[in-house]
Simulated assay, not measured.
Amino acid sequence: MATPEATAALTDLHTRRLRLRRPESGDEPVCLALHTDPALYRHAPYARPTRDEARAGFETQLSAWGSDGFDYWIVSDRATGARIGVAGVRPDGPGRLNLYYRLATAAHGKGLAIEAARAAVVAATEWLPGRIEALVKDSNIASIRTAERAGLDAIGADSRPDDPLGSGASTRYAAPTVARVDRLDDSAREQVLGLWCRVTEAGGSVGFVPGAPRSRVAASLADHEAQMASGRAFGVGLRTAAGDLVGWAWWAQVANPLLAHGRWLYRLMVDPAHQGRNFGALLMAGAHRAAPADGAELLQLGYRSGSGLGDFYARFGYAEVGRIPGAIRVAAGDDRDDVTMARRAEGAPLRGDGRH
């Protein structure tokens, strides 16, 4: 069951082209048409429900929002308002959430299913407990691509209990896990250092420029570890289902007790070999899940201008609250602004107290 805060956050989501919202009773005709369309069950025709079964499924969707605080969303086109499908996650066994996406045929071929699935996995990672998985027919190449672009990896063959004999093989996919880390052992230290160096060489804005000696990066890593040992910082690691470290960040607390309710996000990094897999967004979502559990109420971060990160962070509710022109000298003749952004941990808008 979702917390009240999670349900509030999940009720209405927006992506660049889509709106994902809690279903209403008036959505029934759209859902019935969607789930009884033979064209949408080409890879599993036996799974297409009757109209009565589809109606019962829609009632389950509605009631789950009331009892669990989340379920599948109605997906609509933000430009036209047209309802084009459903997508989301729902419980599928202990500790597991099933990722689902089904869009009308007219919406196919535009990357909209990928956009919806990516948003669903990110939202679930931030707000819901459980491992996010999807079961996909091996013949359904488009659905496999959608799962992979949303961040999921194949973890092995599987099937549904109601799959008939001869219905074709299926593969289970799982999203990466994001976890708090309070101490690095030798193996994890080498993994974080290697990741940091790879991101630096790819031009990532993580404190260094390409060509920085590995020893300098290692020294900064040691500084972060000292903060972790003091209890003023912790790491957040993103690992694939196979256990590979593909993302990392730190939350740090300022020593000043007047600022103890805030946390600063440092060194958000994703392995360059995994770009385009939704991993950066999943790492941010997991970091946001970890921060309030540590007592954080206000989240802050900084980045250097010219990196394109401002738009990325704005997607997660961050607002620019400060900018120092030319404060960062990347190279001779290349001065960048030092930009600060912030958001409330629970996602509420930032509001000043009005005092001078």
Rank of each mutant, 00 (worst) to 15 (best):
T105W: 14
W127K: 03
L32Y: 04
E126K: 01
A47M: 09
P29K: 09
A104D: 14
H43L: 10
Y41G: 02
T80W: 12
D71L: 06
E126F: 01
A107Q: 10
L103D: 10
P91M: 13
A54M: 12
G57I: 11
D92L: 04
A104F: 03
L112F: 14
G69C: 12
T60I: 08
A33W: 08
S63P: 02
I114V: 15
A87Y: 02
D68W: 04
G95M: 10
D52V: 10
G81M: 13
R118V: 09
R55M: 10
A123D: 02
E133V: 03
A87I: 02
P94D: 11
E133S: 01
N98R: 00
A134Y: 00
L32K: 00
G93M: 03
L62C: 11
R90P: 02
G130F: 00
A56V: 13
S67W: 11
G130A: 03
I84S: 01
V30S: 07
A33C: 09
A87M: 06
F70N: 02
G85Y: 10
Y101D: 02
T50Y: 07
I114Q: 14
Q61W: 06
T36G: 08
G26T: 14
G88R: 04
F70G: 00
L34G: 04
L112E: 12
P49V: 04
G109V: 15
F58Q: 08
D27T: 04
L103T: 00
H43C: 11
A123C: 04
R102S: 03
D27S: 12
R96F: 00
A123P: 02
E59Q: 12
A33H: 08
E28S: 07
H108P: 03
G111F: 15
D71Y: 05
S76Q: 15
A44V: 13
D77I: 12
K110P: 05
Y101E: 02
C31V: 15
G95A: 10
V30C: 08
D77N: 09
V122F: 11
V89F: 01
K110C: 10
A79P: 04
R102C: 02
A107T: 15
D37T: 08
E133F: 01
D37N: 07
A47K: 03
G95W: 08
A82D: 08
A120M: 03
P94Q: 13
W73Y: 09
R83G: 05
A113C: 08
G85M: 10
I132K: 01
R118Q: 11
